[in-house]
Design a protein around this nucleic acid. Structure first.
Lengths: 331, 331
DNA sequence: CTGAAAGCGCTTACAG
DNA sequence: CTGAAAGCGCTTACAG
């Protein structure tokens, strides 16, 4: 195992001073082309790469970001892929961090994270205990993307509930008038956004709402909610906050002898793998998670640099129409 | 924003030398209890934490590990949770890295990763282009867990296919004799292990195998495989390499007018969220992904330190019996 | 356009 | 049991 080459080694081989090597690698202007090329050639020959720890010590910048990992269900892989790629392009390295399940504990961990000076920013895909107010102590780090603003309004890419409105309008077009919403856990901005959009749409279009039930991400609980419905509730359109809830709802409906989509139409969210093969296949919202991750990271990097937030792309989510939605069967 | 405190600041406040502070934090023996406590108190007061970059520069150890992220489907969240927690306990920090889709490109990226001297080890949950032979060049980093040994036998925690044998034996006990395997992508050790276990069990128990089909993770393809089956293949037991394939198979069977589980029993793997709500609910294998991730990381850390590999825990996977399995209906 | 030199915050022999 | 000092590999004013 050869020792790792340093800028001194490169300088010696190239016949220049060590600072010149450094200048070439930091992209400082005013290096003649022949010199730069000599250096680059020597560096390539030794497969030299600057030592990041040493650089970080001088620059007082860690170049590291932390990503807090979330509840199972989000398709973490593509989300991270987008985020990591974007971060790398911006010169950052991304580390995974996980928080305790317990809220008190988690709050302390977030403080430690921010106060550790090891990260320049923290991106959370998970609901965070303290909604985003970096304390004075932790000033050097930026905490972004808790997805709630000061008034606890859901914000951010994951909270764009427009597809829900689109689905409801379409259902109304098919002849549906009676709706039920199975909501997700209320500490998730996306769940809150969907519930709000549901309520607003019911109001705006003068629909009948059987209620907002649920309040967690459990498919079993969604089943129970449907089991508890009155017999004369049909026909009904169920807007579930995600595919798991939708699946639980469909199962309960079918077991009550209701036909889906004849008696009840159901929509989900996330386009999880099995929703396409479900019987009936589930109408859902697919997300471009890679771009969603990339956007989130761009937003964090902008915050760190003091740039203004990048504009939210509009085509990150898309309704996928499937068998679980149809006109209500006349009774 | 106060400047970050250093060991000098702590030393000054505690009235000791800077080296003494360092001794306390590196756990060097031979520090008197009063001194240690003075130092710790001063450090707490300033909320001092050692600068990792500086430490890394002296020790020539980065304390960083890279995790290569995998295909969507693995439940990455819990896997990472286990891995990250274990790594932290061992004094490491975990970074996420993603590889190009293209195999050539990915091979080059792995080399760069190993040659960058930025990581002490690489843990991959994803099939890697070059099965785990660190080149001389990249000797300082260890590459573990490609999950294939030199003869391309699948190894490692994810490749334990015993639950598949258990499911087949149970099906035989119910009266099944005719089987079909829908395999996963053959660059996944787990897929290979399951296929091998299927073949070995057919052989050992003298069963009839209609074939091994599939070869990727597409539920659509699984559907097509079932659609292509002869009409007189019933009754049949389908062993699918995961829940998505199982779901595709069930859907195709039902659409052919076959009853599940009356005419065909189906098993999956992974216990994805919707498999419990599927109609019928899918018999599957649940994995303790947190512990699976922790085990993988323990193995990597052991490799780095030259310790021997930790023993594989045996209860990481468990068969979950559900509606998709029943005795074959007499025809 | 290039070089000599200081210093980032640690760890770790070496003295005492 | 504790301290003074060297040095890890960089970046960046400052000279020239």
């Amino acid at each position: 195992m050869g020792k790792r080459p340093t800028s001194h080694d490169v300088a010696r081989l190239a016949g220049v001073s060590q600072s010149t090597v450094s200048f070439v690698f930091t992209g400082r202007e005013g290096i003649s082309t022949p010199t730069r090329e000599k250096v680059l050639r020597a560096a390539a020959e030794l497969s030299y790469r600057p030592n990041l720890a040493a650089r970080s010590m001088r620059t007082q910048r860690t170049g590291r970001l932390a990503v807090v990992i979330p509840f199972p269900g989000l398709n973490l892989g593509s989300l991270l892929e987008g985020a990591v790629t974007t971060a790398r392009e911006a010169g950052y390295t991304v580390e995974v961090v996980n928080l305790s399940d317990e809220s008190d504990e988690a709050a302390r961990e977030v403080d430690t994270l921010l106060g550790s000076f090891e990260y320049e920013g923290v991106l959370s895909f998970s609901p965070l205990p303290k909604p985003g107010l970096p304390s004075a102590e932790s000033a050097p780090a930026f905490l972004a993307l808790t997805e709630f603003d000061e008034e606890m309004h859901a914000i951010g890419a994951f909270s764009d509930a427009r597809p829900l409105v689109e689905m409801m309008e379409h259902l109304v077009g098919l002849g549906h008038r009676r709706f039920l919403h199975i909501a997700g856990a209320s500490d998730y901005p996306a769940a809150v956004a969907r519930r709000d959009a549901y309520l607003a749409t019911v109001e705006r279009l003068g629909l009948e709402s059987v209620g907002v039930v649920g309040g967690n991400w459990s498919g079993i609980h969604a089943r129970e909610c449907v089991e508890a419905l009155a017999d004369d509730v049909l026909p009904l359109a169920i807007i579930a906050a995600n595919d798991v809830l939708a699946a639980g709802a469909i199962r309960a409906a079918v077991q009550r002898g209701w036909s889906v989509p004849g008696d009840v139409s159901v929509t989900g969210w996330d386009d999880v793998a099995l929703s396409l093969h479900f019987l009936p296949s589930i109408t859902t919202v697919s997300q471009d998670r890679r771009r969603l991750g990339a956007y989130s990271m761009r937003r964090l990097v902008a915050a760190i640099r003091g740039d203004e937030a990048p504009e939210l792309e509009t085509d990150l989510q898309q309704v996928i129409w499937r068998e679980s939605v149809a006109p209500p069967r006349p009774r």
